[in-house]
Amino acid sequence: MAPPTSGLHHVTAIAGDPQRNADFYVGTLGLRFVKRTVNHDDTGTYHFYFGDERGSPGTNITFFPWSDGGRAGEFGAGQTRDTAYAIPTDSIDYWVDRLESRDIDVERAERFGETVLRFEDPDGIGLELVATELADDADVQPWDDGPVPVDHQLRGFHAVTLAVAEFEPTASALTDVLGYELEAEADGRRRYRAAEGGPGSAIDLVETDAGRGRMGVGTVHHIAFMAEDEAQQQRYREAFADQGLRSTEIVDRKYFRSIYCREPGGILFEVATNEPGFAVDEDVEELGSSLVLPEWLEADRESIEAQLPEFDGPSIEDGSQ
């Protein structure tokens, strides 16, 4: 069996307009724009990364902005429903005020003893802010120049909620391959926790009667879990195979190495290494300031740039990039 994962590494979704996407995640949520590159498998599409000051694993939500002309997704079984960030327990009022002042509808609820603020991004992707004591233990690097005061900044991921037709197939991949354990169950929701616990270690499953979802703008493409190195990834490949699941070979994504496997419930799982990180081609102070390409695409820079939509960089209302 593979070693238990520490938890979530990143979440990747599909956006519409790139400018609107960046303005929201930086200007409204206060995440730093840590990398501007392209989808390695579709170089006419940007790949944006938003995270803490350094883009630490466990803080990054990433996007393929397809533009507003891209095909709209349809929510259904086999998709991520919500991506939840941890916030300090005394930050609830700050975030309610901040979001509502931007005309964002916020739903407030209690779940497993924690206060949850649910809302959607401009493309309809479900987001949550969870006031949790785990936020105090998060290994994140505050972005001192961001638009959100350091005391209220997002503390990396708390959990993701996966919508499935039935619990067991996806639960088996979580427990038998990634080392998650069932922690709690309430109101039709099952919470699984990575063995190490701590921030970013929870996965929630909910069942849905909706048919299989369709990938497109406004949906999550995949979720990624942490691996220490490629040796661990090989063990995950073996563990997936032991469950009758086929995973990819290790893929070089420049900032981490990845394997991919579609679990039985239809959700695409990635397992990504924590190294080398985003500072391999930009100084930390310059992260996200220019289009960076991996070495194997650099010779095509001119044609790649010609295909990409117009983008001016994120707008920050009350801070500096």
Results as ranks from 00 to 15, higher is better:
Gly7Cys: 05
Leu8Ala: 00
Val11Met: 08
Gly16Lys: 07
Asp17Pro: 00
Asp17Glu: 15
Tyr25Gly: 08
Gly27Tyr: 11
Val34Glu: 01
Lys35Trp: 03
Asp42Cys: 14
Thr45Gly: 10
Tyr49Glu: 00
Glu53Arg: 07
Glu53Gln: 14
Gly55Cys: 07
Asn60Thr: 12
Thr62Asn: 02
Ser67Val: 11
Phe75Ile: 04
Ala77Asn: 10
Tyr94Thr: 05
Val96Tyr: 04
Ser101Cys: 13
Arg102Ile: 02
Ile104His: 02
Val106Leu: 13
Val106Glu: 13
Arg111Asp: 10
Phe112Glu: 04
Gly113Cys: 11
Gly113Asp: 09
Glu114Asn: 13
Thr115Cys: 14
Phe119Tyr: 14
Asp121His: 11
Pro122Asn: 07
Pro122Cys: 14
Gly126Cys: 07
Gly126Asp: 02
Glu128His: 03
Glu128Phe: 07
Ala131Arg: 03
Asp137His: 15
Gln141Leu: 11
Trp143Leu: 06
Trp143Pro: 04
Pro147Arg: 07
Val148Gly: 04
His158Gly: 15
His158Trp: 13
Ala159Leu: 12
Ala159Ile: 03
Ala165Cys: 12
Ala165Gly: 15
Thr170Leu: 02
Ala171Glu: 06
Asp176Leu: 11
Gly179Trp: 00
Gly179Asn: 02
Gly179Lys: 00
Leu182Trp: 06
Glu183Leu: 12
Glu196Lys: 13
Pro199Leu: 09
Ser201Ile: 10
Val206Ala: 13
Val206Glu: 15
Gly211His: 10
Arg212Tyr: 07
Arg214Val: 08
Met215Leu: 15
Gly218Ser: 05
Thr219Phe: 02
Val220Leu: 04
His221Phe: 14
Ile223Pro: 02
Ile223Cys: 01
Ala224Ser: 15
Phe225Ser: 01
Phe225Gln: 04
Phe225Asn: 00
Ala227Lys: 01
Ala227Trp: 00
Asp229Ser: 09
Asp229Glu: 01
Gln234His: 15
Arg235Thr: 13
Arg237Phe: 06
Glu238Trp: 10
Glu238Gly: 09
Ser247His: 05
Glu249Pro: 05
Ile250Thr: 14
Ile250Gln: 10
Val251Met: 11
Val251Glu: 12
Ile259Gly: 01
Arg262Trp: 09
Arg262Thr: 10
Phe269Ser: 01
Val271Gln: 00
Thr273Gly: 05
Glu275Cys: 03
Gly277Leu: 06
Glu285Gln: 12
Gly288Asn: 01
Val292Ile: 13
Asp300Gln: 15
Glu302Leu: 09
Glu302Ile: 12
Glu305His: 04
Gln307Trp: 03
Leu308Phe: 11
Pro309Asp: 14
Glu310Trp: 10
Glu310His: 07
Phe311Ile: 06
Gly313Met: 02
Glu317Met: 11
Gln321Ile: 14
